[in-house]
Design a protein around this nucleic acid. Structure first.
Length: 244
DNA sequence: GCTAATGTTATCGC
DNA sequence: GGCGATAACATTAG
């Protein structure tokens, strides 16, 4: 479920509850004190990268889907929800999500300019942050939530393939124009992801992620655990340049 | 039944 | 203390 665009879909799916008052709330693992939510109005839903934010007047609940999180709007599963919110006009349930109570103003916590889905996204900032890290690899840069908030492993692979950049390229060795292209593609592709995910056709548009061979020249993709987080990269040694 | 997967953080050992 | 490696959490499609 995760990656930034999926959180945008979630935000749209729950907008009927904006302004609604929580009439009952439960949390099945004690991560947050659900009692604090009761009789509180939801002032807004926001997102930053993969973080989904439920805003109340005095605090915010941060919901992170991690790998396996899911949600239901106006329905529920058999098992108890990690977070259950009941309203006059319906219910909202989260499962296997990581919850966090935030008591500070969100603007103190989040830099909205690093979120690839945000209207405030600043590509220049991402480039400056990348340049500041000497041995940073392209695969790690794209996965770095402080640089490309919302980008996950699928978007990473598609962006590197689309821009012909080898995942193990050193960011500082990538020519400036090319690095700019990669940075802009991270945002541009995220909106393709959003459009295709909404239409239920995301998988069929994958060119690299989980694919066996390069669609450009039909040689097998290299599949390697790359970078700090050792996440899978699918890449073509013929058409993706290794800058080093 | 087993495996791997759109993710992140805490902890361990050097 | 800093670093990387490892564990932990948790779900389900294939």
């Amino acid at each position: 479920m995760p990656e930034g665009p999926s959180i945008i879909i979630l935000k749209e799916a729950v907008k009927e509850f904006k302004g609604q008052t929580v009439i009952d709330a439960t949390c099945n693992n004690g991560a947050i004190d659900a009692g604090r939510l009761i009789n509180q109005p939801i002032t807004d839903f926001k997102s930053w990268g993969k973080h989904f934010l439920i805003c109340f007047p005095e605090f915010t609940i941060r919901v992170h889907m991690m790998m396996f999180g899911s949600y239901r709007v106006n329905s529920h599963r058999d098992k108890p929800a990690r977070l259950h919110l009941q309203f006059e006009n319906g219910e909202l349930n989260f499962y296997a999500a990581q919850l966090l109570m935030i008591n500070e103003p969100l603007d103190d916590l989040y830099d909205w300019e690093t979120d690839v889905m945000s209207g405030l996204w600043d590509s220049y900032k991402a480039i400056e942050k990348m340049k500041a890290e000497p041995d940073l690899l392209a695969c790690d840069a794209l996965m770095n939530q402080q640089m490309f908030s919302g980008v996950g492993n699928i978007i990473k692979n598609e962006v590197l393939f689309n821009t012909h950049i080898h995942p193990l390229s050193k960011v500082n060795a990538i020519p400036p124009k090319k690095l700019k292209e990669m940075t802009n593609e991270a945002r541009r592709y995220s909106f393709d992801f959003l459009k295709w995910k909404k239409a239920g056709v995301l998988k069929r548009h994958w060119l690299a992620y989980n694919k066996k061979e390069c669609p450009r020249n039909h040689v097998p993709f290299m599949v390697k655990d790359t970078g700090k987080s050792q996440r899978k990269s699918f890449y073509c040694e013929l058409c993706q340049t290794l800058y080093r």
